[in-house]
């Protein structure tokens, strides 16, 4: 990175460190923090969407839809996330390619499963094998987002289901008495009010989501723990200009600080959000706010 870094073996102390910490490998490490943050930023709303869908389905008056909603939440939550991640991404990828294959290559006559191989026509490949590397990486990233969203969506569905039930029943009855249809009452009365009941559960879910990121490498995304292991391990002078012993402890300490800091910041933000949501609500918290203002 810096001009004086051409021959690291002659360097010492801080100059050595400044060169060491700016190698391409370290830049990948720093970039992985961005990857993880972006992934969290995309996964959280997606999971919420899945959760909302799941919760609405579980409350549906149409029986198959209700079974689907309840089955989704019950099954996905009963399985440890590692076990899920170990086979689910490949399955998801194959499912997408299978569907594309059916649409794009209806004339294809060879079987898709040949022995152990899973073969679809070239045009159905996701992404196309001619696509540049970044497309492949983005696709892998999106698959990881989707897998995370499906798992955490099941938890979110459970929280939202509880929150929908917690909205005072009288509110809904009043809405219907005013002539609102079932759909109107749901969207105008229940949905705006349920968030305050859901927030404690959802904020915990967010904390869990943060702490599930070390599992990202199972999904093919190079996360911060992967790079910390890779960089911290002993390196032989034959393979690097910066040989060192087992430094995993330092790297993991750095990660520990990152996670604790991230948790703390999240706690503060969520607390503010809770205050805002509580405003004007018929809960003890809302009552307390009203009294304090008066």
């Amino acid at each position: 990175m810096f001009s004086y870094c051409t021959d690291p073996s002659t360097l010492e102390g801080l100059t050595w460190l400044s060169c060491y910490l700016t190698t391409g490998k370290h830049l990948s490490f720093y970039a992985s923090f961005v990857t993880v943050l972006v992934l969290l930023a995309i996964t959280a709303p997606t999971a919420l969407l899945f959760g909302f869908g799941g919760a609405t389905a579980a409350r549906s008056r149409i029986a198959p839809l209700r079974w689907f909603g309840k089955g989704y939440t019950a099954i996905v939550r009963g399985v440890p996330d590692i076990a899920f991640f170990l086979f689910f991404v490949i399955a998801l990828d194959q499912a997408f390619e299978y569907l594309r294959h059916k649409v794009k290559c209806p004339d294809w006559e060879e079987p898709i499963r040949q022995g152990n191989d899973f073969i679809v026509c070239q045009a159905a490949k996701l992404p196309l094998s001619t696509a540049p590397q970044w497309v492949h990486e983005t696709y892998g990233f999106l698959l990881a987002v989707l897998t995370f969203a499906i798992v955490f969506g099941a938890f979110a569905a459970n929280v939202l289901y509880g929150a929908m039930n917690a909205v005072p029943h009288a509110q809904m009855e009043t809405a219907e008495a005013y002539g609102m249809s079932h759909r109107q009452a749901f969207w105008r009365i229940m949905v705006p009010q349920m968030w305050v009941y859901a927030l404690p559960g959802l904020s915990n879910l967010w904390m869990v989501l943060i702490k599930a990121t070390p599992l990202l490498f199972l999904l093919g995304v190079e996360d911060i723990v992967y790079w910390a292991r890779e960089l911290g391990g002993t390196v032989n002078p034959r393979f690097t200009d910066y040989p060192h012993g087992d430094w995993r402890l330092y790297y993991f300490t750095f990660l520990l600080i990152f996670y604790l800091g991230f948790t703390r910041v999240s706690e503060i933000v969520l607390e503010r959000l809770m205050k805002k949501l509580t405003h004007g609500q018929a809960t003890t918290g809302g009552e307390a706010q009203r009294k304090a203002a008066a």
């Binding site: 702490k211 990121t213 070390p214 723990v225 993991f252 520990l256």
Partner: peptide, 18 residues
């Protein structure tokens, strides 16, 4: 409580083993 709830179990295992 903050230390154990704020960090991934993954990292806790690493430090403990060390």
């Amino acid at each position: 409580i903050f230390l154990f709830r704020g960090s991934p179990l993954f990292i806790q295992f690493f430090f403990a083993y060390f």
